[in-house]
Amino acid sequence: MGWKKSYLDLTLVPLSLLFPILYHIWLWRRIRSQPQQTFIGINSAARRLWVFAMMKDNDKKNVLAVQTIRNAIMGSTLMATTSILLCSGLAAMISSSYSVKQPLTNSVYGAHGELVVALKYVTLLVIYLFSFLCYSLCIRFISQVNFLINVPQGDANSLVTPDYISNLLERAFSLNIVGNRLFYAGLPVILWIFGPVLVILCSVSMVPILYNMDIAEGKGKAGIRKEDKMDGKISAAV
């Protein structure tokens, strides 16, 4: 009897996890091999060029650099605040005396016992906690860049080089990307509360959306020629 109630969860939920995992493995390989064809690789190269440009003409662009980094910090702070607020609400719901099973009825497909429903909320809580952790570390690295980007470059023995600052900035945005993907992963888990069928539908629908967000399609022959010229530069920057 227990199998009849939970077989959808045991089959559809692991299957729904498989799609985004395989997609991100493929995306990671694409970024490593062909970064010029992904927005992540192009943006990474652009950020490195931006750091070199800001530090090369620091006397004129120091205010612009600080304002740009401040805007990035504000965006990560907003997402971190949203994540921790969701965590607080979920923690309050789990720890309250109100049964987490009560919002669900027998019309929900799949397992809907108190243990399973509590597992859904705990899974969602863990996802948003890790998302908050990534955003917090991102803010930490960007704050370091905010201080170091205006360091004078006259001393030949200075340890604060454009390469060092670029690496810090890339770590920050890598953590920001991970935080965003974890935040997106919370949506199928939220739908899992209402049944496993919605989970796999949401996961399958998110893959083409993420593909359009990550992959830079060609824009004609002229665009392809420009990409060929920039290929070596982007690969070296990434």
Rank of each mutant, 00 (worst) to 15 (best):
G2L: 11
G2S: 13
W3T: 08
K5N: 13
Y7I: 11
L8R: 05
V13T: 08
V13C: 04
L18M: 13
F19W: 08
P20W: 10
L22G: 07
L22Q: 02
I25C: 02
L27R: 02
L27K: 01
W28G: 04
W28H: 06
R32M: 10
R32Y: 11
S33M: 11
P35W: 08
Q37Y: 15
F39W: 15
I42C: 07
I42Q: 15
N43S: 15
A45G: 07
A46R: 14
A46I: 05
R47C: 00
R47I: 01
R47T: 00
L49W: 15
W50T: 01
W50H: 00
F52H: 14
A53G: 05
A53D: 14
A53M: 04
K56S: 08
D57N: 15
N58F: 10
D59M: 14
K60W: 14
N62A: 15
L64C: 12
A65G: 10
V66A: 11
V66I: 12
Q67P: 02
T68G: 14
I69A: 00
N71M: 10
N71L: 13
A72H: 03
I73C: 00
M74A: 06
S76P: 03
L78S: 09
T81A: 15
T82K: 08
I84F: 12
L90P: 04
L90N: 11
L90E: 08
S96F: 06
S96M: 07
Y98L: 13
K101A: 12
K101N: 13
Q102S: 09
L104E: 13
L104K: 12
S107N: 13
V108G: 04
Y109D: 11
G110Y: 04
G110K: 07
H112T: 07
H112K: 05
H112L: 04
G113R: 00
G113K: 00
L115A: 09
V117P: 01
K120E: 08
K120L: 05
Y121N: 03
V122A: 11
T123D: 06
L125M: 10
L129P: 02
F130E: 05
C134S: 12
C134N: 08
S136K: 08
S136Q: 09
L137V: 02
F141E: 00
F141I: 00
V145G: 00
V145R: 01
I149Y: 00
N150I: 15
Q153P: 06
D155F: 09
N157M: 06
S158I: 11
T161R: 06
T161M: 04
I165V: 15
I165Y: 03
I165H: 03
L168E: 01
V178W: 10
R181N: 12
R181K: 11
F183R: 06
Y184A: 10
A185N: 03
A185F: 10
P188K: 04
I190A: 15
W192S: 05
I193V: 13
I193D: 12
G195M: 02
G195T: 01
V197I: 14
L201W: 06
S203P: 04
S205L: 14
M206V: 09
M206E: 07
V207D: 01
V207C: 01
P208L: 02
P208Q: 01
N212K: 10
A216F: 05
G218L: 14
G218W: 10
K219Y: 11
A222V: 15
A222F: 13
G223K: 06
I224K: 14
D231C: 13
G232R: 09
G232W: 03
S235L: 09
A236G: 14
A236C: 08
